[in-house]
């Protein structure tokens, strides 16, 4: 029942995201205006913790199924810059990224369903326009 393990990992992630206030519009504006350390503290502890965990896992372990730890690398494209800038624009407007959308909806903020629906629409629109955009 590995799906249960993914669910539990998601629950812990969602709790940390919400209790860490990374799902609030207010913390995002504080971060973009360099008026507080909170969000930078989250990134600056999350990334090294993840890096150390991955290093230990690769050095000493295998996956739960006994496989070698391996994953396809991230590819660079023009979208890495253009798409990321566009996402950044939306991040500041909504004060949230995809993870917080789910957490906000769970927290009972029903209007985030609208923001999320527009995000899915944006994803779908990208699928349509992909062949016309610089890759």
């Amino acid at each position: 029942m590995k799906l249960l393990a993914y669910l539990l990992t998601g629950i812990v992630f969602g709790i940390a995201l919400t209790k860490g206030e990374a799902v609030t519009w207010y913390r995002m504006q504080e971060m973009f205006h360099f008026q507080g350390f909170h969000m930078y503290g989250i990134f600056m502890t999350a990334v090294p913790t993840a890096a150390l965990g991955v290093w230990l896992l690769r050095r000493f372990g295998k996956t739960a199924d006994g496989e070698a730890v391996a994953f396809p690398p991230k590819q660079f494209s023009k979208g890495t810059v253009i798409g990321s800038l566009l996402f950044g624009f939306g991040w500041a407007l909504t004060g949230a990224c995809p993870g917080p959308f789910y957490a906000q909806i769970g927290a009972g903020l029903s209007v985030t369903l609208v923001t999320f629906a527009f995000a899915v629409l944006g994803t779908w629109a990208y699928g349509h326009l992909q062949k016309y955009l610089p890759a």
Partner: peptide, 9 residues
């Protein structure tokens, strides 16, 4: 805002 998040990501 939502559209840009979905399109951009």
């Amino acid at each position: 805002g939502g559209f840009l998040v979905g399109f951009g990501t």
